[in-house]
Amino acid sequence: MTEIKFIVNGKNVKVAVEPYIRLIDLLREKFDLTGTKEGCGVGECGACTVLMNGRAVNSCLVLAGQIDGNEILTIEGLANHNALHPLQKNFLLHGAIQCGFCTPGMVLSASALLNKNPNPDEEEIKDAIAGNLCRCTGYKQIIEAVKETAKEINSPSKQL
């Protein structure tokens, strides 16, 4: 067992774990953050995407022993209390969700993109979510939702 300190969804936490368990297991099992999903376990599907220090990573490829001092954001931490993140709202409005299994990872990948590049073109959006497989939606409504969010971010007059 190793003691690890890190920040999850804005909270400082300390946990004693086997260092070799994967970040996804740490989040799901020790913190009950089950919004992070496992689809492949080899970093191909992106369902386990979380943000680590603001960057999208596959939490199935990170070991608990590697995250000491890092900041982790999961889907549960994206909404500001009960106010949805604009991406979450637009995923709803654009029908970007079907089965919902890829949704948490997809939303987080898109949010990492918008944080870095608030005005992405369609290719940049596609590239940002290329590591998030979705079998239901054909991605179209997801791309629309991200585009619309970017538009809102860039027109401050509009209420988010």
């Binding site: 496992e38 709803l92 029908g95």
Partner: peptide
């Protein structure tokens, strides 16, 4: 008409429980 999914809110916030949850 376009209608928001009844389970959408839970799915977009990570609250929706899938079997392994």
């Amino acid at each position: 008409k376009p209608v928001i999914r009844e389970d959408g809110l839970d799915k977009v916030t990570g609250r929706a429980k899938f079997a392994d949850d």
